[in-house]
Design a binder for these strands. Structure first.
Lengths: 206, 206
DNA sequence: GAGGTAAATGCCACTGAGTGCCAAAAGACT
DNA sequence: AGTCTTTTGGCACTCAGTGGCATTTACCTC
């Protein structure tokens, strides 16, 4: 091969992106269940057999944008130098991963994806499951890098789940009440949610 | 009808329980995917059509035990008097719900169910999705009872997610390293996880 | 205890997701 | 050009899940 991105690779990326965009479009228009994979594949001019070489399931294709973020999170976590609390380490890692997402297009796809997930239980379930797998992978990284492998200490896991909870909150607020609907808007809400974490423990109801 | 539990109701409960127990048994033996609903229905001597009048999906039947717990959680949350922090309210509610589960049989079913879910992605996804729906329902209860309906305050949601995170931790530890494997064993681990929550925020990595 | 009612079940045909297999096409390299 | 390797398409198949309708079964009344 002569270039870093061969024709073959470029075609694959184009097919993948076409499937994602067309899927988000059709699912949003006609609904997730009402859209069949046969329709989608016909629109992208790809056989159903090929679809399943790119994505593991019908849900998967619509969740791709968020999955990119978590992949970047794991990637960043492997190299980031710790400073301060564990919670802060997680937070900085997630914000850094967010900063690595494409400035154009990515945020819009996430918006479509999340709104879709909110009214499609199987999509939401798929997303949560992916989140769960990612947090387990993140804990593995923690164990390998810092030796936090005391199976009786729940705190590394709990801290990670707190960050995920904050992320979900920020994502939902951003999805349904966006101010600008871009990456930085989401980052701002993430910071707000992170800031609210310590005070949450002491909150009283009355 | 003369008795509180008519013959009809008793039969329905028996069928439901037979489906759950047989499903847990077969899924554990041969694996979730390898077991078809036709097999399961044949074993319980019930038509597949009837199966879907009891459970919404193949995953659903194997997650029934945990769902009972969350139903009790919601139920208790509607009446419990708040005292102390919001986090403590959630914790007490969950422990109370746990206390209402049948002392016999329930814990064993949960054990089977969770071990199955750990090696069956679609089951795990289903469980997480149910958890998510329950937390949203719980937040609705909070709003109605205490007027915590400020959409800009993430803390009620975050606190609930913290309790859920602690629950997941406790459940997993109990599932794979049980001491006695009964309800009280799980309750003890829950208390440990709850106790670890406040210190989690300040934990440092180095 | 026979007969009517309503609920629960069974049966059948159907849709659509997802997979295995093998042949055909297309990019890569010499 | 020709050859090798990766990717794709087509086909047949399994199985989860659903709608519709006939059949059974518990319930209730006389």
């Amino acid at each position: 091969m002569n270039t870093a991105t061969s024709l073959r690779e470029r075609k694959k990326l184009r097919t993948r992106q076409a499937l994602i965009d067309t899927a988000l479009d059709r699912f949003t228009e006609r609904g997730f269940e009402a859209t069949t994979l046969d329709e989608l594949c016909a629109a992208v001019e790809v056989s159903k057999r090929t679809f399943f070489r790119y994505f593991a399931s019908k849900e998967d294709v619509a969740m791709a944008p968020t999955q990119d973020l978590w992949a970047a999170f794991l990637d960043d976590l492997r190299t980031r130098e710790p400073s301060g609390t564990l919670l802060e380490l997680y937070q900085e890692t997630l914000l850094a991963a967010l900063g690595r997402m494409p400035a154009e297009g990515w945020a819009d796809r996430v918006l479509l994806s999340r709104r879709l997930a909110a009214r499609t239980p199987s999509m939401n379930a798929h997303g949560l499951q992916f989140c769960d797998r990612t947090t387990r992978a993140a804990l593995d990284v923690l164990r390998q890098r810092f030796g936090l492998d005391d199976p009786h200490d729940p705190r590394p896991r709990l801290a990670l789940d707190m960050v995920v909870a904050a992320f979900h909150w920020a994502l939902e607020a951003w999805t349904f009440h966006p101010e600008r609907g871009d990456r930085d808007d989401l980052a701002g809400r993430l910071r707000d949610a992170f800031a609210a974490l310590p005070g949450t423990v002491a909150m009283t109801v009355a």
